[in-house]
Amino acid sequence: MKKKVLLMGNHDTGSGKTSMRSIIFSNNLASATSRFGATIDVEMNHVRFLGSLVLNLWDCGGQETFLDSYLASQRNTIFRDVGVLIYVFDVETRDFERDISYYIECLDACRKNSPEADIFVLIHKMDLVTGGKRERTRAFELKKRELDKYSGSTPIKMFGTSIWDETLYKAWSRIVHTLIPNAPLLSSHLTSFAKICSAIEIVLFERTTFLIIARSGTSTGDLDDVIPPEAGPDSDPNVINPERFEKVSQLIKAFKVSCSRMQEQFHSMEIRFPNYTAVLELMTTNTYVMAIVADPNVQTATLRLNIRLARERFEELQAGSAG
């Protein structure tokens, strides 16, 4: 199955489209992206995701001359058969008005040519907002409210992102999640698998990108389902960090890059902390599974054995998921 993914946004200075693409799909570290030059015209990439799903990434250069030509002469080629449109804004933009006018035009072109397309908006470079989390949330809300006015009848999912933290993984896993047709089925299987393992939580990641595909504990397959409301730091020891999946994605991805410097490849990991045990292991050829267990009597070896036994079933499920 092939899906066309458009990465767009208008910026003369570079809003970071190529950087985020390379971090998610090419195992680059955030610090390595400063070397990237501007994208000229459109760079096309085929990325294999979950084995049989091919993402056809169109990384569209953001300079105005290019945008003008996308909207005029190339309009049909660019905006036809789009599966996902990802429109990127720079949070610190100098000319928001102009950004919006291009955004409206792109949105319009996309809806006319590919009415089925899912549309996402990323407010990028959130790390440039000075202050803490509250300031960033406020800056994001401000932009979101502004953009909602122009987004038309259908609601558009928006994320504040930065290549320097887990927000990038959050946004991208929500994006690819829309491309996995049987996510609810995977979730329900993970939920029963978690029961078998006495695990608190079992999460499935895609192997190369480490984006979350599914997790236990949700009935609908929606990743944001039943996440406990965010509390103040350390207010309640039982609150699970709501950003944990993205954090794991980010941590393991960065660690994988470090391992490759040793001429070795990351393969599996197990951790026994005083308060929980985690096992991260290959599930199928294209996925990693992470099991979190709080019961101290559950041994990592048992978890590994269970994972090995579940492997065949999940291979079958996943073959169905990528169709």
């Binding site: 608190i200 939580e201 020891p237 039982n238 609150v239 699970i240 960090n241 944990r244 954090k247 794991v248 941590l251 393991i252 960065a254 660690f255 951790i271 902390f273 005083p274 308060n275 929980y276 985690a278 979190i292 709080a294 019961d295 101290p296």
Partner: peptide, 17 residues
């Protein structure tokens, strides 16, 4: 560094273990 950050992701009362 990875482990230290990992340890903050899940918090359960230590008394159970």
């Amino acid at each position: 560094q990875t482990l230290l950050q990992f340890s903050n992701l899940y918090k359960y009362p230590q008394s159970s273990r």
